Amino acid sequence: MGTTLLTRVKSKLFVHSRRRSRNLLEGEFASVFHGRSLDYDDLRDYVPGDEVRDIDWKATARHTSPLVRRYVATRKQNLLLVIDTGRGMAAAAGGGEPKKSVAIVAAGLVGYLAQRHGDLVGLVRGDATGTIAHPMRGNEAHLERLLRAIDTETTLDGEQSNLTTQLQWIVRNVRRRLLLLIVADDVELDPGLSDVLRRLHVQHEILWITVQDADPTSVDAARTTVDVADHYTLPTLVRTSARVKAAYAEAVAARVRATNTMLDAAGINHTRVGSSDDVLTAVFALLERQRRASG
């Protein structure tokens, strides 16, 4: 059997992150679920970003460097991956790889952090025609199956993306409080989504990652470029036109502003990534902002 998807995710984590950075990343993840019950675990060295209130001053006085108290959550912060698996996510991302590859790294990274803390991980995926829910479990074999489902169900001949369908399903069917990681296609959000997002934010902790589209006006002129939404081939003379390039850039900027405005209004922390190499930094920043917002 070849390399598993989760193994590839771990490789990215370990290659791009030193031990101290990984500890910070795991610490940020552990802190995002506000209102949790905590039990004292042990002491560890202070690292930038730790809460001053967690410093154990008596223990610090006996050592040459600050020590902080480490706690463990007595209530699980179960994670639900919410992934768009419509055909839009089979198209190219900004870095050139399929957008689903970026989604798999994001889902795998946060899922791995959750399982490291003893949390359960589930998946809600789908497209404009419907939603599929996978159960919550707490082992790596299950996380690998979830990543495989994202990979195999996201195809260029699949149905259109419409993440609103999946988010409405969660509003109707999920009652328990969860941490949601939403990985979305780079499309204009439905204006009617605002109310759904506000309702989700009241009940859940939410992290939102948008996977950026490749820029069709910057692709090698010798390559054929196809819009996966309608399978229309974009003529080379059109996409290399200076006027088209400018209009496309303006349209993307307007879409990004509209998305940011909607998510900000709903109180949801969000980011954009163009490649799987961007995911680690983006997730760390999201977790840090979530911790500060929840503090």
Results as ranks from 00 to 15, higher is better:
G2I: 07
L6E: 02
V9A: 02
K12Y: 15
L13K: 00
R18D: 15
R18L: 12
N23Q: 15
F29N: 04
D45P: 05
I55C: 06
K58I: 04
A59G: 12
R69E: 05
R70G: 01
Y71D: 00
L79C: 06
L81V: 02
D84S: 03
A90H: 08
A91H: 04
A91R: 01
A91F: 08
A91L: 04
G96R: 05
A103W: 07
A103R: 07
I104C: 03
A106L: 10
A107M: 10
L109Q: 07
R116S: 13
H117T: 07
G118D: 09
D119L: 03
V121Y: 02
V121P: 03
L123M: 05
D127M: 06
T131G: 05
P135S: 07
A141C: 06
L146R: 02
I150G: 00
L156W: 06
S161W: 08
T165D: 08
T165W: 10
Q168H: 13
W169Y: 12
V171Y: 07
V171W: 02
E188L: 09
V196N: 04
R199W: 09
V202T: 15
Q203H: 13
S218F: 12
D220S: 12
D220P: 04
A221G: 11
T224F: 06
T225K: 03
D227A: 12
V228H: 03
V228P: 14
A229W: 05
D230Y: 11
D230N: 15
T233R: 15
T233G: 05
S241I: 04
A242M: 10
R243D: 13
R243T: 14
A251G: 07
V256P: 02
A258W: 08
T261Q: 14
M262N: 02
H270S: 12
T271A: 14
R272L: 13
D278G: 01
L280T: 12
T281G: 12
A285S: 10
E288H: 10
R289I: 06
R292M: 11
G295L: 14
